[in-house]
Every structure is written in C-alpha cells, then in structure tokens.
Amino acid sequence: MTDLTSIAPEDITLSYHERVKRLTDLIESLRIADEIAEHGYFISSSELADLMDVNASAVTSRGQEWTWRNWIVSRVKREGNQILWQLDRIIGNETTT
C-alpha cells in the first residue's frame, strides 16, 4: 500500500501518463544539463531558471556557487545585464567539466 503522506498533494490527482510525462521532461532537462556541462557552455540566469523550472530570481539569489542535483553551478561572469553560469557535473566526490 502507498503511504499518501509522502506524496505531494498535486501528484495524487495526476494520472499515470501525466506522472510519466513529468519524469520524461525531467530526464530531458537532465540530459540538457549534461550537454551544457560537457561542452563547457555558459548559460544565462533565465536559461538556467528554465532548465531548473524555477523563477530567474531564485537562480540569482543563490550566490556565486551552489549545487543543483548532480551539478555544481558557478557564476562565471557578467555580460552587460546578464549573469552567465557554468555547470560542472558531479560524479561521486569529483566534478567534471
């Protein structure tokens, strides 16, 4: 039997197909993050917020360096009015670029 206290309220009403779609979208976001890290691309705060599915202010308020899922996110520079970020993949206790 499923413990309903461990399920987010919005997930209770989702159908199986909707939950699978959310997971599929998550996997696609993680693959994109891996590609960004692998190629050493810099991304803007708004692009990073889109990738993380959060508001851009949630990205910029986190500081110079922080962890998101399997990546260390580092603020690398400012270009005009944009802050650019770099992702480094965490593998075990090590990071890769």
Rank of each mutant, 00 (worst) to 15 (best):
R19P: 09
V20P: 04
K21E: 15
K21W: 03
L23Y: 10
L23E: 13
D25F: 08
D25N: 14
I27D: 01
E28Q: 12
L30G: 02
L30K: 05
R31V: 00
R31I: 00
R31E: 15
I32A: 15
A33K: 03
A33V: 05
A33D: 04
D34L: 10
E35N: 10
E35D: 14
E35K: 03
I36V: 15
A37W: 03
E38W: 09
E38H: 13
G40E: 07
Y41K: 01
Y41E: 08
F42R: 14
I43L: 13
I43N: 11
I43C: 05
S44H: 03
S44N: 06
S45F: 03
E47R: 12
E47A: 15
E47W: 01
E47F: 07
L48K: 02
A49P: 02
A49F: 00
D50H: 07
D50E: 14
L51W: 02
M52E: 08
M52H: 01
D53K: 02
D53N: 11
D53W: 02
V54A: 04
N55T: 06
N55L: 00
A56R: 14
A56K: 10
A56Y: 08
A56W: 07
S57Y: 09
S57W: 09
A58E: 15
T60C: 03
T60E: 05
T60K: 06
T60G: 10
S61D: 11
S61A: 11
S61V: 06
R62T: 11
R62A: 12
R62L: 10
G63W: 06
G63K: 06
E65Q: 14
E65S: 15
W66A: 08
W66I: 09
W66G: 07
T67R: 13
T67W: 04
R69C: 01
R69D: 12
R69Y: 13
N70V: 05
W71L: 05
W71V: 06
W71A: 01
W71S: 00
I72H: 06
I72L: 11
S74C: 12
R75F: 01
R75N: 08
K77E: 13
G80K: 11
G80V: 08
G80F: 06
Q82D: 13
Q82A: 14
Q82V: 07
Q82E: 13
I83N: 04
L84G: 02
Q86L: 11
Q86Y: 02
Q86K: 13
L87S: 07
D88H: 01
R89P: 01
I90W: 01
I91E: 15
